[in-house]
Design a protein around this nucleic acid. Structure first.
Lengths: 314, 314
DNA sequence: AAATGATTTATATGTATCCATAATACAAAA
DNA sequence: TTTTGTATTATGGATACATATAAATCATTT
């Protein structure tokens, strides 16, 4: 029934009979519905979605049929799908459409790595036994990690995981690298800021600046941060710069899985202010200033999502 | 007989019964022998080599036994291996130890891509049939390409290949990226040139400057070029900068497989002169100058291995 | 004691088959 | 003509077993 995942019964997760691609589609689609792209009663075109996701209509239609069963959309004969009831704002996506087994193992491995529960090298069987999953899942998860540069096959047997950003040296190098990439990106001749995206970033950072600290979730903060840097670099229109920043973000996301990333009031506010100043400079097309602020922003110790000094001093 | 490769008979290549790891070891070991690490008659420790390569003694011993059959080394009872006859300088490694099937397919795919024989998207089966190889080989080759960022799985079915550096846009971005990375590397606080490596580079580049053009093989030129840039960046002591340049080099190696990379007399000489000037500046610790020359070196159109204009104008 | 050689263990690949499902083509309706 | 629904094709994931071989262990020699 399931091509890519094991059968739902194996681990107790009810995937609702959705394949992993379908799960992916569902989890991409739900937020789009929540955002209100379609009014209630409006038609949802499967073909358009398929085109948007770069896949065929088949999996899209299957997901829409799944949502039809749950009452979110309705399918009328020869008239396609229409929106019935957008998901409630607080509705938990994970419960509605559980993450795929690969997703789950991916998070588990990152978490274990970041907390030193598994070493820098491991065999497939080791992982398989440690997390109690199937060989195929392990294989595909490792392939994904490897595609993101977080793991690589060793000669002979086993896998080697990327170093975590878990020591001062690596963190310093990461910041130095990002400073070079991002300042370089801003100063590129081909740099063109997208006004809409810029405004969206400004809104997001302003919100972070003003929101009470307790209401800011660590992961939301991290993602906003990552989005800021990735978006700014994306304006350079240089695929290699963008790729580099993505890679850095995924490395940093791994560190994020370690519980010790604590938000500090001062750090968060300072970072948000920096970000807004950078955006302002970009908006005024003062790229030298933008680059200078960026450089200072990245030259100092991890802003906001600071790594606990005790863990980093080694 | 062969774990990782298909049987030798399938493609006519005589792998001599070596597994792919063994092939890899053999191809790494031969140059070391040629370099003269061991004198004739000297003992070659399998354990030491295994440690050096990060694998177990088993595959190393198998390669040494293979070399014993060919008369390069000798195995004496309870006394291990000794060097008998270093391979002749002109001896072709590819003939002695043929590249693994993954290597071969890797090159074939790159070549086909660079020449537009296969499109930017392809299914495994398509590749499998096109090159007449087995599914496993295709799989592992694609995984390798994907680890290097040259291909990625599409959602649904099939693979998407990274754009080759076969259009003006991508080439420009690559050069801009390298300029940022390399200039940034040279200006880093942690930059420390290794005198020995510097001298080796100087020797190599001087040789390229003076050798008659006809005697310079394209791939040798490319590798020397790649080595120069990678070594200089490695002095930054920043793992991420180094990783980026490695990635660029492997991407550029792909373009290299296109037949249209022609050496031009002026280009080769100019590049070698630039390289020497950069090394000189680094040696004098004038990093600003080094960075400036590097920037100019990378700002111009592809030096040396120039892409034919007719192919790039699109 | 250290290195070598042989043996055992365990890891992961090769191969083949099966089949879910993604892609595609086609028919029907709007 | 475009969109929707259905049928067909075929890709590639899952699985299992056999096997090669890398790693680990142990015995032997120097």
């Amino acid at each position: 029934m399931n091509t890519k995942g094991a059968t739902p019964e194996q681990d107790g997760l009810d995937t609702g009979g959705l394949s992993s691609l379908q799960i992916e589609v569902a989890r991409k689609l739900m937020p789009i519905i929540s955002t209100g792209r379609w009014a209630v009663g409006e038609k949802i075109s499967d073909a358009a979605l398929a085109r948007e996701f770069g896949i065929s209509r088949t999996p899209v239609r299957q997901v829409l049929q799944f949502l039809a069963e749950r009452g979110t959309v309705a399918q009328t004969d020869n008239r396609g799908f229409t929106l019935v009831r957008p998901p409630a704002a607080g509705e938990n996506v994970d419960e509605f459409v559980p993450p795929s087994e690969v997703d789950t193992l991916y998070r588990q491995i990152m978490h274990a790595r970041a907390n030193g529960l598994i070493g820098s090298e491991a065999s497939e069987t080791e992982i398989l036994e440690h997390f109690g999953t199937s060989r195929g899942i392990v294989r595909r998860t490792l392939m994904r990690l490897s595609a993101e540069g977080l793991a690589e096959r060793r000669d002979g047997h086993g896998w080697r995981f990327a170093e975590c950003l878990d020591n001062r040296q690596a963190v310093n190098e990461s910041y130095a690298f990002r400073a070079i990439i991002e300042c370089g990106a801003v100063m590129e001749d081909t740099f063109r800021a997208d006004p809409e995206a810029l405004e969206a970033l400004e809104r997001e950072q302003t919100a972070l600046l003003n929101a009470p600290l307790v209401s800011i979730e660590g992961s939301a903060w991290f993602e906003a941060n990552a989005r800021f840097h990735e978006t700014v670099v994306s304006w350079s229109n240089n695929r290699f710069l963008i790729q580099s920043i993505r890679r850095q973000n995924s490395l940093r996301r791994m560190t994020e899985y370690a519980e010790f990333a604590e938000l500090s009031e001062a750090g968060v506010r300072k970072a948000a202010r920096d970000h807004l100043a950078i955006l302002e400079a970009i908006n005024a097309d003062d790229r030298k200033l933008a680059s200078a602020i960026l450089f200072r922003h990245l030259s100092r110790s991890p802003a906001g999502a600071a790594v606990t000094p005790s863990r980093i001093e080694d």
